[in-house]
């Protein structure tokens, strides 16, 4: 097993850990964190594949894909957090008006 393989498997592990937590937690904000961890795992698989094929000059197509992935992740995170905060604000306001 090469060093590229180690990071490949680490990426798989992160993706699975994040996904399991994403499904099992009821806390909206922590779901966003879990989604980010899972996404990082997927990106790590891509970077590790690029590194494994040629450690001296890794595949720049995969690096470009990962850059795209990072920007998409932050877009999704910003959108998800805005919605989570809106939902929790409404819950809080409803509780306040009941009391």
């Amino acid at each position: 097993m090469t060093d590229g393989d180690v990071f490949l498997l680490l990426g798989v592990g992160l993706a699975v850990l994040g996904t399991v937590r994403l499904v099992l937690t009821g806390d909206h904000l922590r779901r966003v964190v879990a989604l980010n961890v899972a996404g990082s795992g997927v990106l790590m698989v891509l970077v590790a594949v690029a590194y494994r094929s040629n450690p001296e000059e890794p595949d720049s197509v995969l690096h470009a894909l990962v850059l795209t992935g990072i920007v998409i992740t932050v877009s999704v995170t910003g959108l998800a957090l805005a919605m989570v905060r809106r939902v929790e604000r409404d819950e809080q306001d409803r509780q306040a008006s009941h009391e």
Binding site: G4, F7, N36, S40, L43, V47, A48, A50, Y51, P55, E56, E57, P58, H63, V66, L67, I70, V71, T73, V74, T77
Partner: peptide, 19 residues
């Protein structure tokens, strides 16, 4: 470490910074 300095810069600025 995996030879992806562009991704490292983006991670530091976007993922760790803005996120």
């Amino acid at each position: 470490r995996l030879g992806a300095p562009d991704v490292a810069l983006a991670e530091a600025a976007i993922a760790a910074g803005v996120t």
